[in-house]
Design a protein around this nucleic acid. Sequence first.
DNA 1: AATGAATGAGAGTTCATTCAT
DNA 2: AATGAATGAACTCTCATTCAT
Lengths: 211, 211, 211, 211
Amino acid sequence: MPKATFFNLTEEKRGRILNTALDEFAEHGYQDSSVSRIVARAEIAKGSFYQYFNDKDDLFIFVIGEMIARRKLSVYEKERARLSELSLTEFLRLVFHRQIDEFAEDPRIMKISLELIRLTAKPVFHQLMDYYQVELNSLFTPFIQEEIARGEIDPGVNVQILNFMLVSLGQYLTSLLLSGNVDNITHSLIDRIVDDLEYIFSRGIYNKAAN
Amino acid sequence: MPKATFFNLTEEKRGRILNTALDEFAEHGYQDSSVSRIVARAEIAKGSFYQYFNDKDDLFIFVIGEMIARRKLSVYEKERARLSELSLTEFLRLVFHRQIDEFAEDPRIMKISLELIRLTAKPVFHQLMDYYQVELNSLFTPFIQEEIARGEIDPGVNVQILNFMLVSLGQYLTSLLLSGNVDNITHSLIDRIVDDLEYIFSRGIYNKAAN
Amino acid sequence: MPKATFFNLTEEKRGRILNTALDEFAEHGYQDSSVSRIVARAEIAKGSFYQYFNDKDDLFIFVIGEMIARRKLSVYEKERARLSELSLTEFLRLVFHRQIDEFAEDPRIMKISLELIRLTAKPVFHQLMDYYQVELNSLFTPFIQEEIARGEIDPGVNVQILNFMLVSLGQYLTSLLLSGNVDNITHSLIDRIVDDLEYIFSRGIYNKAAN
Amino acid sequence: MPKATFFNLTEEKRGRILNTALDEFAEHGYQDSSVSRIVARAEIAKGSFYQYFNDKDDLFIFVIGEMIARRKLSVYEKERARLSELSLTEFLRLVFHRQIDEFAEDPRIMKISLELIRLTAKPVFHQLMDYYQVELNSLFTPFIQEEIARGEIDPGVNVQILNFMLVSLGQYLTSLLLSGNVDNITHSLIDRIVDDLEYIFSRGIYNKAAN
DNA sequence: AATGAATGAGAGTTCATTCAT
DNA sequence: AATGAATGAACTCTCATTCAT
């Protein structure tokens, strides 16, 4: 975590540094990011950087934390009131549509999110886990459990597997957003994807007539 | 692709280099791999390396090719005769069990496989695609399509989404294998996972009684 | 151009680096010069070098600039007052004598000057031209034009050809200075050369009696 | 000089090597030429190269020798009969026109010729001098001396200086040919240059009216 | 607290030449 | 005589981090 010096900075400077770091990590990824470039773009002294952060990883972990906070906010906080009324499909729809909006607002966050999966082998990943462990791969778990409790979802369904499927689908969507250009991934495409998913979820995948 | 020089080497030397490269890429990943370390460990001169390969990417692409060849062999070739008789679930079971065996045989290959997803942004990834395009993300697609044709799977099912789910599940398994130690991921766990998947696939996820 | 870092150095260190670079370029030429040798001789860290200069070319261009500045100073600035009173021959005499003095003062500069002609095909040459364009090949042009305007030189004379002859003669002198040892190229030799040139310039080369 | 093995080769192979070397030296210059590329293009084994030549310099010196032989042939041999009838101006005209033709025939030779001047500081240059000393810088000397003997040129004219002027002019022409494209350097331009030179040579450069 | 110069290990790559076959 | 694999020194340049001011 950043040192006290960092949090004593003016909000403007702190924001400038965070913003520059987002740029850097989004553009070059964690691996190819460069402290030199960050301090140059943020217009702070290199020595100052190491008075704010222990090292490059320290900054990265902080940036990820900020991102998670924002995304959590965007999905949960903003709609918290409605969450309990939603079916799983409706929730998925909401999450995925929100994902597109977030991408439009600030594509850097999604870029860095995707990058996270690539870091599992690096030491920095374990540090990340120490702080934000729960957050990364269990987005849908509490919701699924609630649905089971409410009798909507079959208790025989393996929560982890279902959660993983949905998380993966989110990643799939993310990679679509990042590979192509935004215009192609319209909200109507999202609806189609969720419809197709709902099709599977409601009937299974097998041809009933055949059995 | 490696130069003719490489293929003219004795099998012992060629094997030593390939083996060292597998070690290096598995341990450090593509990004942090080092030609200097490879030549040191393989006990060849640095100049020799560049007489065998055009550059680091050339070696990496070759290693990936070798891996794909081995995995293809292991999954498809070895059981080709049985494939048409299998249901999707049975095929999944076969693939995932095989994955565990492969991991036990040579965990490096799985480590490097997982690494591939991390490289989508790097130039080397596009080179990889030029050689092995089909292999990476459509493992189950042909099988699903065949099952639809045979009337086993509902034609209303979105092939891409289903394929992506299964591919993701394979990656999930891989990451489980790599994160923990092998002993925890037994064949019986695989059976349980596939059973749970089959549960979802055959009935959907919703509580029929509730509807 | 060197980075601000370089100009912030103490004059001693800056001088040491410049001096080492002069040694290196004079001894090995641009092509065979080595950053590694320079930093070793100047006793600075390799990393420091790249904090002072963008790359090897950057240093070279700077060194050339320093040289041009010094030579310009020596030929033009020091005698500026007298220039307009001089005939072309007197000017030549002055330039060539000055060349010998410069060589005695610091032969490295002349060595590097001569090297410049060898670089026309290299990218660094075009960079050089962007900074010091005018300086290299038109030393005598303005003077010749002035002499024509003053009615001293025949307007029928092709300025470029005459200028090129004189520039070449300067290079000839330079190569004489560099090939042999200094002692052989005395000021009296210069006088003889300029006398011989003046002989041609005043009468042409043909035997008048014969025609 | 090449070893006996080289001269024992079939003419085809010898020619192929010479030709490839011309390509290489013309394209990359002596400094940046690469033995590896030469053997690759000439399709001979690297080991063979060192059985034909002692080293890279050995090949270079041989190539220069071949070039000099060709150029001498082209200028002197082909017109030997007419040489004694020509005035200096006519000879210059002939030489410079011939230079253009040579460039059209094989620009590589001119490219390498120009490169020679750039090598004065390199060890290979001294080796070159040991073989072809006279040839490089005294093209016009014998002719000037003959003209003086015939009473055409004023005996007061310094032969070396006049020769150097003309040699330099040849280099100037060469650099024009190499820098621009060939079409711009027409034979009529040559005539104009020689006319301008003749203008200076016949009258000197000074304004007679003024004196 | 802020600065930015200093550091040197390490990266990938090229090269002319040797030598065993 | 022909081969081409082996060699390792040398190259330019980048990097995260330290530390004196």
